[in-house]
Design a protein around this nucleic acid. Structure first.
Lengths: 157, 157
DNA sequence: TATTGTTATACTCTATAACTATA
DNA sequence: TATAGTTATAGAGTATAACAATA
C-alpha cells in the first residue's frame, strides 16, 4: 500500500481527498517545470549553468565532496558530474585535490571566489524573485516561503 | 523601490527579514531546479517531453490557442513552439486548424486522445509523487499542497 | 512596414558505453 | 573482480538568424 495513506487513514481511496492531491500534484509538476525554465534564463552569471549553480550550492552546504557523491546528490550520472566539475574548476570556483585515503577518488572543494559569487548571485536572484513575489498576495508569498525548504527536502529524497 | 516592501513595511532592508527571504529564495530555486530534473525522468509516456506535457496542460486549462500564444505562455521562443506543436500533432494529441480571422495564424486544439492520456498520466504521476510525499511529515506535505497552486501562479506571472 | 509562423543551424546539457587506474 | 572517474559519442531540447506569407 502506498504511503499516501498518511493523508487518509484507511486505504488509498479514489475519492475527493485523492482528487485534491492529484490536483496538487499536477499544479506542483506544472509550476516546477515552468519556473525551472524561467530560472534558467535568470542566471546571475551567464557563464554558469543551473547545474553548476546547484553543485556550488551543495558544496556550500555540505563542504567538500567527491565527484561520485556530488553525482548522487544532484541525481546526475558520473560523466555529467565530471563535466560540471571540470567547468567549475576552469572558472576557478572549485579546487580538485587527491583523496587522502583512496587514490581513485578526488575531493572537490569550493574556492573563496565561489563564496563571493554565491553571495552576489543570492542578491540578484532575490531581486528577481522579489519582483515576482511582490505581485502575489502576502499570504501566497508566505505559503511559498514556508514551502521552499520542504520542496528542497522533497527534491533530495 | 521593490515590491519586496510588502513583507517589510519601511524599505528593502539588509536585515534579518531579508536574510530569511534570501534563504527562501535559495531553497525555492534549488528545490525547483532539482525536482524538475527528477521529474524529467519520471515521464509517464516516454515519448512525451516535459515541454510537450506542459503545453497539453495549458491547452487543457485554456482551450485552444495559437502557437504564438502558447510560446508566450510557456516562455519559450516561437521556433521551439513550432517544433513542440509539430511533435504533438504527429502523435495525434493536438489538431492544427486555420485561424478564422487571420490567415497568418493557426489554432491549436487538443484531441480526445490527449484528454485520455492526461488522465492516465495524472494517475501515474500521483503514484510517484505520493511515494515521495509519503516520506514527508503530514504538515510538510500539507505545506506543499497549499503551495502548489501558488507555485503555478508564480510561474505564470 | 510589422507580425505570425517556419526553416536552417548551432549550442548546451545529459546519458550510455567503453576505457583507465586503483582497491 | 569491483569501484571511481574519465573519454568518446549520440540524443534531446532550445535559441538565434534568416525567410515566407499575410496584415
Amino acid at each position: 500500500m502506498s504511503d499516501l495513506s498518511r493523508t487518509s487513514p484507511e486505504e488509498v481511496p479514489d475519492t475527493e481527498e485523492t482528487a485534491v492531491d492529484q490536483e496538487a500534484v499536477n499544479a506542483l509538476r506544472s509550476g516546477v517545470m515552468r519556473l525551472s525554465r524561467r530560472l534558467k534564463h535568470q542566471r546571475v552569471d551567464e557563464s554558469l549553468s543551473p547545474a553548476e549553480m546547484s553543485v556550488l550550492g551543495t558544496l556550500a552546504r555540505c563542504g567538500s565532496a567527491t565527484p561520485g557523491e556530488l553525482a548522487r546528490k544532484e541525481h546526475v550520472q558520473p560523466p555529467s558530474m565530471t563535466r560540471i566539475v571540470a567547468l567549475l574548476e576552469s572558472k576557478g570556483l572549485v579546487r580538485l585535490e587527491p583523496h587522502p585515503e583512496d587514490r581513485r577518488q578526488k575531493v572537490v572543494t569550493q574556492t573563496e571566489q565561489a563564496e563571493a559569487m554565491l553571495e552576489e548571485s543570492r542578491r540578484r536572484r532575490n531581486a528577481w524573485l522579489a519582483e515576482l513575489a511582490g505581485r502575489l498576495d502576502d499570504d501566497e508569498w508566505a505559503t511559498l516561503r514556508a514551502a521552499a525548504p520542504v520542496l528542497e527536502k522533497l527534491a533530495q529524497l
